[in-house]
Amino acid sequence: MHRNQKHNRWGKFILLAPALLLIFVTTIYPMASSFWLSFQDWRLTKSDQPNGFVGLQHYQRAFTDEYFINSVVVTTEFTLLSVGLTIVIGLGMAIILQKKSLTNAILKTLLIFPFAVSPALKGYSFRFMLAQEYGIIQAIIGFLIPPLKGMVWLADPFWSLFWIAITEVWGWAPLYALMFIGALGSIPTDIFEAAKVDGATNAQVFWNITLPMLAPVLLIATLLKTIFSLKIFDQVVTMTGGGPGRATQSLNHFVYQVGFRSLDMGYSAALAYILLAGLAVVAFLYVKSLYRQGA
């Protein structure tokens, strides 16, 4: 018995070690290294090696850097927009498709496809479809709402951000719909029937039964989408390049520009760390709610 336990313990660590070691090397090492870099002056244009310790200078600089502040505002607006739309549209889709039928079964299969489209491609595709004159979405909107005919969507600061959010909604809302359909299916149907017998309207059932029952799933979905939205980058590159002006320059895009266009590694590491701090807060809430639900 004693020998067996000892054997077990070693077996355990042999199985665990390779994965943990690799995760450590590929995440903890660069994290620590970035943290250290964020206190260094290191412009690759000047030297191949860090040029010395500058203390909190990069962090101080960030909070007086109007481009940085702009990128924080853009990222926040984008996150609110894309998370809100994804959850609402995902929920709407789930409610429409929850009834079992052949059409719905086929539709549910189709819902998995947008998520498999790469974010970079989503960005290009929507940019193409929004183009003036030959963009099909632009043409359809112009046909349905004549005053918007010939609108250059991606030249407008708000609408360009909105359409980047739509690319995200397109990828995520169908997926969340599937998740919500699963959750809806686990609500006992007699609750709905009882409510109907008592004369509740559809709206009352939705607000007083469906929504509270879905609350745990909605919370997880919201936090998860928030984490991804705060990291938005690919579509900014392929759709707007951060423009018009800097109207769609997300924090990640700004960090990229500072680090890999201006080659100011120290400052960009500090900026990346500020983003990390923001994400850490959301990630903390996420882990907490995950554990509260006993996942």
């Binding site: 994290m31 984490i227 990390l276």
Partner: peptide
Amino acid sequence: VLVTQFIPPLVVAIPFYTL
């Protein structure tokens, strides 16, 4: 292990790029 997934890519990319 879970929270490593929330690290923004650029935090990882900057040191690896130089390395």
